[in-house]
Design a protein around this nucleic acid. Structure first.
Lengths: 239, 239
DNA sequence: CCCCTTTATAGTCGCAATGACTATAAGCCT
DNA sequence: AGGCTTATAGTCATTGCGACTATAAAGGGG
């Protein structure tokens, strides 16, 4: 970066790509848009767009998130920069460097088609088939990152509405990790971690359907979990 | 990213910035270059440079790493993408988006001045004063990331030469975290983690200086630590 | 040459965290 | 009413880990 001038560099297009994740029932879903143009016309892709001259990648990502989901207020949503994808051939048309983000939503709204008139919808993570460009890789990286951060941060509450039950919180872990957790142990662990969740004071209870009504909790003030909530170790792991 | 054309976007300059970290004795050091030109002439900055048209950010970072350190073979060094810094005003001259990397070196070579004829040297992390641009932030983020990854990955061996003693490995943790660790407990934990380190078969021993010679180990095949090696919790942490 | 310092390694003890499990409570459904 | 479902309370044994003691193997200074 010493002594460069305006003409010493090659200009790049800079975009953001978003892996917008949410839980629908017991399945992880991702927001995808259908491409209308070549390349990859007819393929599904992650939503995204260009970073404009006066905004940062974070600002651009939040703007795109609002546009694609149709949500009015996205200020409270968790948005996390994943990494930047810059392989020279990742877009066949031109040199595009993309800053990827993961966004976590509690209650998924029905998406409306973006300004580009492309179709947008939620697809289950497992059946999000081959995506355009390197978006399969980005989506997998998003999943890995979120799964890892569940272990040692309070990220799971970002998937939950403002007030939630411990069962819903456990469902987040089980869905993202793809493993079942013991309910009493999960409960003990969460409640023993200071600042993870705090009970809603009024004896508020929510009855969603069957079974005994559960107590409601809010996200606490802590951001990290000490000690972490480790996922059960995989069986076929190298010894 | 639907239906853009060549002229629908604003071109950006894309650079890489490197936080090259190493251990000298018992202190964490970072490789810095002195800027010769405005802005921030005379200030220290992280090494870096432009991404060229035919290379990815990772390739550019490894190329810059070789140039700045003078090392011939940087293929075995750990290079990790941190995040991308894209605030519109982070460079007063023009719009520059920078992909930041952390690089970990075992034995620090004496740096030679880069092609820009700027001065380059190792500085202790703690006395790496105010840096140019947003490089203070980048350096702090690199330190945070490395400290966190020591907990749940085998990253510490990236600071060590091919063969090392457990005392040297412990020194990595103590230096990066800034805390003292109990030696027998550290040893027990490391040896109990399958794949973290493996003993050098020949009864090889290294006598660096005083004390009983220590057994030598190599980095194992594992990449993650299960369960993690947690750093001692800070005292004044919110309850 | 002996002792002292330094570092490595072995092992002990007790508490805290956790996995596996049982039991009870409180709602809905038929 | 009885059974199903989910929430919550608690038990028990094992593991992990922090704190600590002890022994071994080197070098250095009188």
């Amino acid at each position: 970066m010493q002594g460069y001038n305006k003409y010493a560099y090659e200009p790049f297009a800079v975009t953001v790509d978003l892996a917008v994740l949410t839980l629908r029932g017991a399945a992880l879903h991702v927001l995808l848009v259908e491409r209308g143009q070549e390349p990859y016309a007819g393929h599904w892709a992650l939503p995204g767009g260009f970073v404009e001259p006066d905004e940062s990648a974070e600002t651009a990502a939040r703007r795109e998130l609002a546009e694609e989901t149709g949500l009015v207020d996205v200020s409270g949503l968790h948005l996390e920069q994943l990494r930047t994808y810059s392989e020279p051939d990742r877009d066949p048309r031109m040199r595009v460097v993309s800053v990827a983000f993961a966004a976590l939503l509690p209650d998924p709204p029905e998406p409306h088609a973006g300004s580009d008139a492309a179709q947008a919808r939620w697809l289950p993570y497992d059946s999000a088939g081959p995506l355009a460009f390197d978006h399969d890789r980005i989506l997998a990286d998003a999943h890995d990152r979120v799964g890892a951060k569940l272990e040692y941060t309070c990220l799971a509450t970002a998937f939950c509405p403002p007030e939630f039950t411990l069962g819903e919180l456990q469902q987040v872990y089980e869905t993202v990790w793809g493993t079942a957790l013991d309910r009493p142990n999960f409960r003990r662990k969460v409640l023993a971690t200071p600042g993870f969740v705090e009970p809603v004071p009024g004896a508020a209870r929510l009855t969603g359907g069957r079974g005994k009504p559960a107590a409601l909790y809010r996200a606490g003030t802590a951001t990290t979990l000490h000690p972490p909530l480790l996922r059960p170790p995989r069986e076929g792991r190298p010894v």
